[in-house]
Amino acid sequence: MAMADRRRINGPTGATVPPVFLEQTLALTAPRRAPDELRKIFLKTSLTPPATGSAFLELSAPSTLKLTASVYGPRPLPPSAGFSPHARLSAELKFAPFSTAGNRRGYVRDALERDLSTQLQVALARSVKTATYPKSGIDVFVTVLDCEGSIDDYNTLGIMQALAGAITCASAAIADAGIECVDLVSAGIAAAVGEQGSLVMDPSPLDGYDVKAAALVGYMAGRDEITLLWTKGELNIEGGDFESVVDKAVEVATQIRTVLNEAVKERVLAVGGVNS
């Protein structure tokens, strides 16, 4: 049992449990999407005026993923940090206490959030022209307000969807901040499900698939380059399974890129002074 966080208002000293229901009703109320159909994304920038750049991402119903990203920078590094010829990009991802099913998350960052923060940083770091901003720090903060499904370590899709949303949203926020980038990063997920290992694009934890393997890719569509690749589950090389799952994920990311372009278009045109 974790120690009570001294700096926050804690609940009762006895343990509280989430409500236990009579029967788990897992009825799939909405018809399942086609394997190659993506969910609609709502992505809007500049919703957090105090930040240099910000974005809010939401998936259309019945999906419930909602997250916000805010970017500060480039701002000077503290004197304790040594000289750095490149900008240091740091990323933090946090799940709000009310964002997951099951147990309420605490405010202290746990291992999963630190791991996802590192992956987010890897996905974004190489898309930014860090050489243009020496001795600076760029800070990206992503707060996940609502996840789909549960986020414990064994539910891959829920975690991957949260990270994918975070990468796309953070990239939009970085563009909104006017930071020079090599290209925007969009994230896509594809999975091999069921006995045959048939490929599904943009699978959701709510779809109830039996996932055999899944791949998340952070992709720069303009340059056809991958900044982040994360796969879970067994994938064959000889049979071409690995390649096809990754290619499918890249396809998803490419489609998501169109949404990302729309969202940052206004900001890019304003900064660049270009008439559309």
Partner: peptide, 26 residues
């Protein structure tokens, strides 16, 4: 058996910009 059980990307250097091509990953 030669199957890929998992793959993660780690932090790399800042000498060059941009990501990596799919054929390199392959």
């Amino acid at each position: 058996d030669g199957k890929i059980v998992g793959l993660r990307t780690l932090e790399s250097g800042t000498v060059s910009e941009g990501g990596v091509k799919r054929k390199v990953i392959k």
